[in-house]
């Protein structure tokens, strides 16, 4: 007699979009629950999209493997290292072969959220963000530009949303930044809260603190350089470009050169 394996369902809610994972490999369930502790919804909660997950047979060490995303027959196909997934956006269902280590699940979540957000005028940005005085401040920059430094210099009343990947989407309050579990050098997940965005700062190290507003075209170009782009279908790429244009029309964008001293937070 064949015994049916126990099934799990884990729902991870990031940015108001819930992603469900179902499967029978309890090591994957435990890994999801441990890593996304602050972002778990009830296992019975409805999900925006749902993946059936099984353990990948191939394992790739490190997380530097390139992402390959293709789109045909109305489905997305995602490959990155040991992660292999496909997703049907009409049915909002997919399947994934992945490892129980953080790289694969993080990759899948980032990619899926990027694709889902594009339809809603939102996007993920290589940026730290924090809430202070009821508004979010977003600090964008490449590795080494100062995202971790600005987070370390944050005053006690600032609440970290992320030190690595900012989650931005339009809501009734305008563009809103949401906390994410995606961590960078700081290694601390953001708080699962949200706030309307007050400003974006493009970071650069300098010998003194200097803040300059960017004109609209420059702001769009600068923000675009830090957007996480995974889509290759023209409609999604156009949607992301439109979203960034909309975002920069409603949100001031500044170039921020700063010395790594706490008073930078008082200047912004």
């Amino acid at each position: 007699m064949q015994r049916e394996s126990a099934r799990f369902r884990v729902v991870i809610n990031i940015g108001g979009l819930a992603t469900g994972f179902v499967g029978t490999d309890l090591a994957i369930a435990q890994s999801l629950e441990r890593r996304y502790h602050g972002y778990l919804a009830s296992p019975l909660a409805p999900a925006t999209c749902e993946f059936t997950v099984v353990r990948a047979t191939a394992r790739v060490e490190g997380d530097n493997a390139g992402v390959e995303i293709t789109h045909h027959d109305g489905r997305w196909f995602i490959r990155r290292g040991s992660l292999s997934a496909e997703y049907d956006p009409v049915a909002a269902r997919g399947s994934a072969h992945l490892d129980d280590r953080p790289y694969d699940i993080d990759s899948l979540l980032r990619i899926v959220h990027t694709l889902l957000l594009a339809r809603e005028g939102g996007f993920l940005l290589h940026a730290a963000s924090a809430v202070r005085d009821g508004h979010a401040l977003v600090f964008a920059g490449a590795s080494g530009a100062g995202k971790t430094t600005i987070c370390r210099l944050a005053p006690p009343d600032a609440v970290l949303l992320t030190d690595e990947i900012s989650y931005l989407r339009p809501t009734a309050y305008g563009y809103t930044a949401f906390g994410t579990p995606f961590t960078g050098e700081l290694g601390i997940p953001g708080m699962p809260i949200s706030a309307p965005v007050r400003a974006v700062y493009l970071l650069a190290h300098g010998d003194r603190t200097r803040i300059e507003p960017m004109r609209p075209a420059e702001a769009v170009r600068s923000v675009l350089r830090h957007v996480l782009f995974f889509a290759t279908e023209p409609e999604s790429v156009q949607a992301v470009l439109n979203a960034v244009c909309q975002f920069t029309r409603s949100t001031p964008v500044y170039r921020l050169e700063f010395r790594p001293e706490p008073d930078v937070w008082e200047r912004i």
Partner: peptide, 8 residues
């Protein structure tokens, strides 16, 4: 396959 927008 080119997405584009005019800005100023």
């Amino acid at each position: 396959a080119a997405a584009w927008r005019r800005l100023e």
